[in-house]
Each structure stands twice: as C-alpha cells, then as structure tokens.
Design a protein around this nucleic acid. Structure first.
Lengths: 144, 144
DNA sequence: ATACAACTTAACGTTAACGTCAACGTTAAG
DNA sequence: CTTAACGTTGACGTTAACGTTAAGTTGTAT
C-alpha cells in the first residue's frame, strides 16, 4: 500500500500542512502511521476520508466540531459493518443503532432544508443574471 | 410605514442586537432611521433584506466580506432599475452592466457547483440512513 | 414625576481555525 | 558523509464574528 507524506496530502487536498496536523490534533483525522523517524505516512484511505470531510465542511458549512459528530456517526456504522454477524452483544448493537437513527434522520432533514433554500437562492441569482443580460442587450442595441 | 426597534428585528431574524449593530458597523446593513433620541427604527425592507442576507450566509456559507460584494451587486442592479430610462449617461450604464455580468455569472456557476456537491452528500446520507433503518429492522426482527 | 425596561456607544474579552516562527530531527541525493 | 529539503513539536500571533460589561440615555407606564 502506498504511503504519502504530509505535503503531498496537503497539496492534493488543497490544505496546508498545519491544517492537517491541526485536524489530527483535534481528532478530526485519525493519527496516521509514522516512519521510524516519526514522519507521518498517510494512505489513500486517509486522503479519501479527508476529501469527504472538506466537502462537508465547504458545502454544508459545518464547523469542525459538527464534523466530529458527523464523522463519529459514519465511524459507528463502519464498526457496525465490521462486527456484522460476530458474537458481539446483539442488544448493544440494536441500542446503538436506535441511538444513531434519529441523529442521521435529523441530519438528512437539515440537509434537505438547506438544499431547498439553496435552490431558491440559485433561482434568484439566475433571474438576476438574466435581467442583467437582457439589460445589456437592450442598452447596447439602443446606442446605434 | 411601520417601524421596528432593534430587539424586535433581532428576534424575528434569530440574531442578537449586538449582531445587528455589528452588521451595520461593517456596512452590511444600511443605517436605519433614528428617533429624536437616537434609537434605531427599522422598516420592513430592512428586515427582508436582512433575512436574505442571513440565508446567503447560512446556506452559501459566505463570510461577511463576501456578503458585502454579494450585496453590492444587488444594490447596483437596484440602482440600475431606479435610473432606468432616465437621462443618465448611457455609456456608463452599459459599462457597469458589463462589469457586473461576469461576476454574477461566476456566482451562479459556483452556486450550481455547490448545489451538485450538496446533492451528492444528501444522497450519501440518505443511503446511510436507509442502511441504518434496515439494520434496525433486521436486528430487532432477529431477537425473537 | 418617577421608575424601569429597552436603547445607546465604547471598550475589552472570547472562540474557532488556522498562520507563523523557532529550534530541532529525518531522509534522499550527490 | 554532509548538505538541502522536508519533517517534527511547541508556542505565540492573527482574524472574523461576535459576546459581555459598563456607564449613560430614552421611552413608557403608572
């Protein structure tokens, strides 16, 4: 499996090294493996995860705190899928799932709300754009 | 025309008084009329404008700086519509419009990009939600 | 007229999300 | 084997976007 040093990751994701370390520091990124000398060695998985994070940050406008819970949830589902059909306590699993479900449902609702508002804004700006274009056409057709 | 004091406006818009004054301070809100004693008196227009602002802030995730230009543009269109067919310099108008157009076009493009990414995320979360619900159904159906 | 709630400005405080700098260690190249 | 480029951990600095407090003013209800 190929390994990446911090600057490569930073550049591929459009961040700085500082930001990567910061995200790790606050628990947003899982600490990557280190070389014998202590240098961070990231994998593809780290990068993909990071990209999803950035997307959520930029698009949903989540704070890093909010991203923590956002991630916590997808982590829990992963762990559920890992332990799928193992001899873990069935009751515990169900309990966790029942905890997670409303949180995710709520997220989904919020995202949909935001989405609708965003479409409204898009339409407004589109109208706006059209009016400007029409005005240009009229104004420049008139001057002759 | 009805007038509103700062706290009414703040509550209707879900902000604090401090935030309203701050927005005015940085030029995001036009200074409202004042009473003889110096108390801010807002109108419906102020409120509606403010609400659009909050929407753009929350949904598009604009910084207050970015909102300034966002507003600047809609202001310019307003001023265009005001001066529509007046004896203003036609060349100036056209020049302004030609300046505005690519900016708005760019905004529109950015918004559409964000919108698409958002839809992707929505779909992911939706899938996620479904899987959780299915897991619950399976897990709780099994225990009997 | 007097209280009292709500307004005002001014100034300093706070938090998130990094930027920047110093001092030092690691690694790949010649 | 020694540089030069890149990495590491502190630690302090910065900026946006307000919160908070103080000290005083205005509006209104009795």
């Amino acid at each position: 499996m190929e390994k990446y040093k911090i600057d490569e990751v930073a550049k591929e994701c459009g961040l700085t090294k500082r930001t990567l370390r910061y995200y790790e520091e606050i628990g947003l990124l899982p600490p990557p493996e280190r070389s014998d000398g202590g240098i961070r060695l990231y994998t593809r998985e780290h990068i993909e995860r990071l990209k999803r994070l950035i997307n959520a940050r930029d698009v949903l406008g989540f704070s890093l705190q909010e991203l923590q819970t956002y991630i916590g949830i997808s982590e829990q589902l992963d762990s559920y899928r890992q332990g799928y059909r193992q001899t873990e306590d069935q009751g515990e699993k169900l309990k966790k799932l029942l905890e997670i479900e409303p949180v995710v449902g709520n997220q989904l609702r919020l995202i949909n709300e935001k989405l609708m508002k965003m479409i409204e804004i898009r339409d407004e700006v589109e109208q706006f754009h059209l009016r400007v274009q029409q005005a240009i056409a009229r104004e420049s057709g008139e001057g002759q």
